[in-house]
């Protein structure tokens, strides 16, 4: 787990569902094949309607034409982020596109759980609404230990509190649910024990 996450913001609205995050027609690629897997980065967030893509202005591609990774490292979302399907391709595609953290007012349950158990990125909840104040492209820093997000603007900066990660922080620290279970002695420690 990184202590400090830095990068620019890509801002989305409320109820961003998994079909927007990764449209169903792309779910056919292998997640284990290193080359094929890149396609998930390419199509990440490609289902977001144009108006909502990169708030406040919209119309900003998350991943530019011909690329597999986004210029952005942090997604700022509103309420109920990741609602819809249980497809793990959704958090996976954001990781493949280079996302390190998603900060939202609230998450849909399965998406949140998949993000944590799969160790794709850290899902942070915020007590505050940020999608009106943070603009796509703003430079952000997340201090994971302190639970703070800082927005750096020309000459000034603003800091926002993040909700504590709570009981899932152990899994996040371990890396994913398997590493967590190995540490806790729930499954054998050597990967290739079988």
């Amino acid at each position: 787990m990184e202590d400090i996450i830095e990068g620019t913001a890509y801002v989305l609205g409320d109820d961003v569902d998994t079909d927007q995050i990764i449209p169903a027609e792309h779910l056919v690629y292998s997640l284990s094949d290193p080359e094929e897997r890149k396609n998930y980065g390419k199509y990440a967030l490609s289902g977001v309607p144009v108006d909502g893509a990169g708030l406040p202005d919209g119309g900003k591609n998350f991943v530019n034409e011909g690329r597999f990774e986004s210029d952005h490292k942090i997604i700022i979302g509103g309420k109920n982020f990741g609602c819809g399907s249980s497809r793990e391709h959704a958090p996976a595609c954001l990781k493949i596109a280079g996302i390190k953290a998603v900060v939202a007012e609230s998450f849909a349950r399965i998406f949140y759980r998949n993000s944590v158990d799969g160790g794709f990125f850290i899902p942070f909840e915020t007590p505050a609404q940020m999608i009106k104040d943070i603009r796509t492209g703003d430079r952000l820093t997340i201090d994971v230990a302190k639970g703070e997000l800082t927005q750096h603007s020309e000459g000034s900066s603003k800091t926002w509190p993040l909700k504590p990660l709570g009981e899932v922080s152990e899994i996040i620290k371990a890396g994913n649910i398997f590493e967590y279970a190995r540490k806790a002695g729930l499954i054998p420690s050597a990967k290739s024990a079988g």
């Binding site: 399907s85 399965i110 759980r113 158990d117 799969g118």
Partner: peptide, 26 residues
């Protein structure tokens, strides 16, 4: 089930819910 509509099976008086690939592999 690795499908969000696994909750359908709750109609049979059972606990049923959707999960992702990682949890399913676990």
């Amino acid at each position: 089930g690795t499908d969000s509509h696994t909750c359908t099976s709750g109609a049979f008086g059972m606990f049923a819910t959707g999960i992702g690939n990682t949890d399913a592999a676990f």
